[in-house]
């Protein structure tokens, strides 16, 4: 078998590759009984004394490097900070490795680094180590940035994907599909990006506000595969289902229109500055209010709750209830 694009698309095909080829061939996957590789959570943890160190890593390639609402620098910092954040840990430091192709414009590199710094300042994170390599330009398209984030949480306070409890309320911190649709549109020349930009942003502020109140049981940042993927992952890892109200899920008008014209489901499209979390029902309103006060959380909503059912069910106003599936790489027509 050869690797196809679908192996990196965040769907079931990618899950298959990870479990068959990667997990099966690695023996040591966890340290000190912390969250390890096999858990496929947003990051790993190493329990140390009274605390747990959280580690998360990500490689970033994006076409184009600069897009409405951000650039590869912002996305590589925010992406990693967010993965650490949704583990319930305060992000502390970043290690940053860059592979740059020969002929890359230094001014552009500077813009990218400044963008990284902006996210770090906003979140109170330091870039503490790094690595820079250059490759022939026929071997690499522009650049790849790999970032590893370190965070810390009191021991036992980590929020695992598997932590949902029946009855929990599901909070979504803002509109979905902005990043995926605007980037797609910008790249292919559809023109929606004139009204729309990527939502790429660090979510630590919102997460911290929620953690301060307490009762947060599980979190995820819905990137590749969109909320459809993130919600299904949370549900299946927790062994529960969800009942969601379609009308409560914020979708910007432009995203809605674009998805109607392109035939793309905004729930399956990547976000870069959103969180979905399951919280204790009695804390839900308070957490929602706190998140809404954050500059990225104004549109936050309680979109549903956790059920004993094994499916993620979406109730729509006209179409009744349907199962919200985790997307596979390429949809195949099914309506006869």
């Amino acid at each position: 078998m050869k690797i196809g694009m679908s192996h990196g698309a965040g769907g079931e095909i990618m899950q298959g590759l990870i479990s068959d080829i990667i997990l099966d061939n690695i023996k040591n996957k966890t340290v000190n009984g912390g969250v390890g590789l096999a858990d496929l959570d947003d990051g790993a943890t190493i329990p140390l004394g009274e605390n747990e160190i959280v580690i998360s890593t990500d490689s970033h390639t994006i076409d184009p490097l600069f897009f409405p609402g951000g650039d590869i620098g912002r996305i590589s910092m925010a992406g990693t900070v967010n993965d650490v954040s949704v583990m319930g840990a305060r992000p502390l430091a970043i290690a940053n490795a860059m592979v740059i192709s020969e002929g890359f414009d230094v001014d552009e590199l500077e813009r990218i680094i400044k963008s990284m710094d902006e996210v770090c300042q906003e979140t109170g994170v330091a870039i503490v180590t790094g690595d820079t390599k250059v490759m022939e330009n026929d071997k690499l398209d522009k650049m790849i940035i790999s970032t590893t984030g370190i965070g810390i949480a009191p021991k036992g306070a980590i929020t695992r994907d598997s932590g949902l409890e029946v009855g929990d309320k599901i909070i979504l911190t803002g509109s979905v599909g902005d990043h995926g649709i605007s980037l797609m549109s910008y790249r292919e020349g559809f023109g929606f990006e004139t009204d729309l930009k990527s939502d790429v942003a660090p979510v630590w502020g919102m997460v911290e506000a929620a953690l301060d109140i307490g009762g947060v049981h599980a979190m995820k940042d819905p990137t590749r595969g969109g909320i459809a993927n993130a919600l299904n992952e949370l549900a299946s890892k927790s062994g529960v289902g969800m009942f969601l109200d379609d009308e409560k899920i914020p979708v910007k008008r432009e995203v809605h229109a674009a998805s109607e014209m392109l035939g793309i489901d905004p729930y399956e499209v990547a976000n870069e500055g959103k969180v979905v979390m399951g919280v204790a029902p009695e804390k839900a309103d308070e957490i929602l209010e706190a998140i809404r006060k954050n500059k990225y959380g104004g549109e936050a909503q309680i979109i549903g709750e956790v059920t004993t059912d094994k499916h993620v069910i979406l109730e729509t106003s006209l179409g009744g209830k349907r199962i919200l599936e985790a997307p596979i790489a390429d949809p195949v027509p099914r309506v006869c």
């Binding site: 292919e188 020349g189 559809f190 229109a257 109607e260 014209m261 392109l262 035939g263 793309i264 390429d330 949809p331 195949v332 027509p333």
Partner: peptide, 24 residues
């Protein structure tokens, strides 16, 4: 076309760029 001309243009671009097309 519910979105009128804009949609027609988008579809044309989809066809040009081979974007979200499936064969039948």
């Amino acid at each position: 076309f519910p979105h009128r001309l804009k949609e027609i243009e988008i579809i044309a671009t989809q066809l040009e760029k081979n974007f979200n097309l499936t064969k039948t």
